[in-house]
């Protein structure tokens, strides 16, 4: 429900400002705004899963290094999470 509301809002906002920027000759801004709005809408569509997030990209990039550091230092990083 919240997702649909935000998609509708960002689509309307994106379309309005894209057209406005385009009319003023700011093509680059208009294209980037359209792209950002589309990406946001894609993230919020229900049923769309496995999109990259900052968390997943960082985990993919740094997990081997993190595992190596933890193993090298031989430390336990277990803390209680209720």
């Amino acid at each position: 429900m919240i997702g649909y509301f935000v998609i509708a809002a960002i689509a309307a906002y994106g379309a309005w400002h894209c057209a406005r920027l385009w009319r003023r000759g700011k093509l680059r801004e208009s294209v980037v705004l359209g792209l950002v709005s589309s990406v946001v809408a894609a993230y919020l569509l229900p049923g769309v899963r496995h999109l990259p997030t900052a968390e997943s990209i960082h985990a993919w990039l740094y997990r081997p290094l993190s595992d190596y550091v933890i193993e090298w230092l031989n430390v336990s990083t277990e803390v209680n999470v209720p």
Binding site: E55, H58, L65, S66
Partner: peptide, 9 residues
């Protein structure tokens, strides 16, 4: 994430 990835990333 805070414990393992963030300190490295």
């Amino acid at each position: 994430y805070d414990l393992k990835i963030l300190p490295v990333s």
